[in-house]
């Protein structure tokens, strides 16, 4: 086993070992990597392939009759409401991700730099709500935003509104508020980790060189925490794009997202091919920014090396 590791990491130093010795590790290599590949093929690639094939079919269930068609693609291209929906979903996911990052940054900052011995407690407090049911937390916002809810009652009491009414409920804004709330802890953690890795003496050095606190933040802290910010953004953006529970519960007709339509296609309309196509479109949308970011960070890592 350790031979095999050496073989991989130090091919030169092991060049004098005999063929017989190196033959065994090679088969070992196959058996080690094997299960992972089987796993990937079985549970990732195969379902994806099936989904992809589904987009060229007219109906889902009878696989004996195979009619290859671009009909779904034509329908997708010709239906503007799909495009609008996709666009709106991307926009909402973007807004939710951006707001989550903005809201999470100060929390992460306090956890990383100012919490001192309260740090672990703060991280706990951040995570505990995330352990309760996702559904519960979304429903809680229905109560807050609803007609007899907290927001309505307070505004009524202040005389700002005349009769109890749902405030913001069943709008895209409600979806955004709810999701920002839900994702905040998940966005805060990667940012806190990134901030925590910044050497404190870099901040001292900046201050020593005449940088006032806000300049130190803009020039040193923020750029060095960017990996965490990007991770947090993707953490939120990706699941939000496929979100369908929250829009269904608090979104109303205007808050519908692509996930709701995909859900409809699979469950109610039983139009799996169209559902599959929309899913593929969504996947593509997620992959493009993720691909760009990983490419970008690879380039900047190659230029700068790791921040060590």
């Amino acid at each position: 086993m350790s031979d095999y590791v050496n073989q991989v990491t130090h091919p030169v130093t092991n060049s004098r070992t005999t063929n017989k010795e190196s033959a065994i590790p090679r088969s070992l290599l196959g058996s080690l990597i094997g299960p992972t590949w089987i796993w990937l093929v079985l549970f990732m690639l195969l379902p994806m392939l099936l989904m992809f094939l589904m987009t060229f079919r007219t109906e889902a269930f009878n696989w004996r009759e195979w009619e290859f068609t671009f009909e779904n693609y034509r329908k997708f291209i010709e239906t503007p409401s799909y495009h609008r929906l996709l666009l709106r979903s991307v926009w909402m996911a973007f807004v939710v991700a951006a707001l989550s990052v903005v809201a999470a940054y100060p929390v992460a900052y306090v956890v990383a730099f100012q919490a001192g011995r309260w740090r672990n407690l703060m991280i706990m407090l951040l995570i505990v709500p995330a352990m309760s049911s996702f559904l519960l937390r979304v429903l809680a916002w229905r109560i807050i935003l609803g007609s007899s809810g907290l927001l309505s009652t307070v505004l009524l009491g202040l005389g700002i509104i005349d009769e109890a009414a749902p405030i913001l409920l069943y709008t895209p804004t409600a979806v955004i508020i709810t999701l920002v709330y839900v994702w905040l802890p998940f966005a805060a953690l990667p940012i806190a980790v990134a901030l925590n890795q910044i050497e404190p003496n870099l901040l001292e050095a900046a201050s020593d060189l005449g940088a006032k606190p806000y300049a130190t933040f803009l020039r040193i802290t923020l750029p060095l925490s960017m990996p965490g910010v990007i991770a947090a953004f993707l953490f939120v953006f990706i699941p939000t794009l496929g979100e369908y529970v929250t829009p269904a519960l608090v979104g109303g007709p205007e808050g519908v997202m692509i996930g709701n339509i995909i859900w409809d296609q699979f469950s109610r309309a039983l139009n799996w091919p169209m559902g599959a196509l929309l899913s593929m479109a969504m996947l593509l949308i997620v992959l493009i920014p993720a691909g760009f970011i990983s490419l970008y960070s690879k380039i900047s890592r190659e230029r700068a090396g790791n921040y060590d």
């Binding site: 050497e199 003496n201 870099l202 001292e204 050095a205 900046a206 201050s207 020593d208 060189l209 005449g210 940088a211 006032k212 040193i220 750029p223 060095l224 700068a304 921040y307 060590d308």
Partner: peptide, 18 residues
């Protein structure tokens, strides 16, 4: 510190990595 007429060279240099 940012208004003092002194500058520091740190043991591990504290160069800005980015």
């Amino acid at each position: 510190a940012y208004h003092r007429p002194v500058n520091m060279v740190f043991q591990d240099y504290a160069l800005f990595p980015h």
